[in-house]
């Protein structure tokens, strides 16, 4: 189970301010904490909403360089702009993850060229210029198209994590079900790895942490390979440990017991 730490995201107010003010310590501290809490990758999103792409290109370089100083964990370059992506990948070097590609205009082949150049694992979203299909069939169809176009460029399906996109349950009460079924079918029919941006599901509802961690367990139950989440949330990380053990993915319950001894498991 690959954990991507989501906290360095400039749509969060505190991070936005830190990026705008170039507060190195704040960003480095968030990176360090997520590393220590067990994140395998650290997501970096510096979209502060200035509306100026030059600014975002510079901010990405700035953030990647200073995060690299404090963690050995690879980074996930989180952007919808090719230029910002390139800036991040250049600053990081090979092995960063690309978050994300889709079938929207300009977000497939050009992004994949960069992924090839910098040897990136890739998160792919089933979106087109017409939007995100509401049903499982539609999402499967777009995912298939993305995979076919990538394979034509010589990519192996092992490079990809497909994220079916969990819409907020508050807005669409079938969203949880559609996302779970999409995850299952991406795995079974396309044979690809999967990931989800976990916290989207609970947007607008009370006690979000409860929904988030329950949903994670359900998704892991249909074979989820990765999740973008808050690794400082001990309850969610405890659920990861418990679920890995309960689904035969933790030999001799080794990780579970190590987490227990470190005092990381909470009920």
């Amino acid at each position: 189970m690959l954990i991507i730490g989501e906290l360095i995201n400039a749509t969060r107010k505190s991070v936005r301010e830190a990026v705008i003010n170039h507060d190195r310590e704040f960003i480095q501290d968030l990176a360090r904490k997520q590393d220590e809490a067990g994140a395998d990758y650290i997501d970096v999103n510096v979209a502060t909403g200035s509306g100026k792409s030059e600014k975002e290109i510079e901010d990405m370089k700035w953030a990647v360089e200073l995060i690299k100083e404090v963690t050995e964990k690879p980074l996930t370059i989180d952007t919808t702009s090719k230029e910002v992506l390139e800036s991040g990948l250049k600053a990081y070097g090979p092995g960063a993850m690309l978050n994300s590609i889709s079938a929207e205009s300009g977000r497939l082949e050009p992004f994949l060229e960069l992924a090839r150049q910098y040897e990136c694992p890739i998160i792919a979203l089933p979106a087109t210029d017409k939007g995100i299909p509401k049903d499982v069939e539609g999402r499967l169809q777009v995912a298939t198209e993305i995979l076919e176009r990538a394979e034509k460029m010589g990519f192996a399906k092992e490079s990809f994590y497909f994220d079916p996109l969990a819409f907020p349950l508050g807005v669409d009460d079938k969203s949880g079900e559609v996302t779970l079924e999409s995850l299952r079918r991406f795995r079974e029919e396309l044979g690809v790895k999967t990931t989800i941006g976990l916290t989207n599901i609970s947007h607008g509802l009370p006690q979000r942490a409860l929904l988030n961690r329950t949903y994670l367990v359900l998704a892991m139950g249909v074979g989820l390979d990765s999740a973008l989440l808050n690794p400082l949330d001990k309850a969610v990380m405890s659920s990861v440990s418990a679920t890995l053990a309960l689904t035969g993915q933790d030999p001799y319950c080794g990780k579970y017991l190590r987490a227990f001894r470190k005092g990381d498991l909470v009920v």
Binding site: A47, T48, G49, S50, G51, S53, E56, T79, T80, S81, V84
Partner: peptide, 10 residues
């Protein structure tokens, strides 16, 4: 919903 599409608003 994206910083990259905000300029389209302008």
């Amino acid at each position: 919903l994206l910083t990259s599409t905000m300029p389209a608003m302008a």
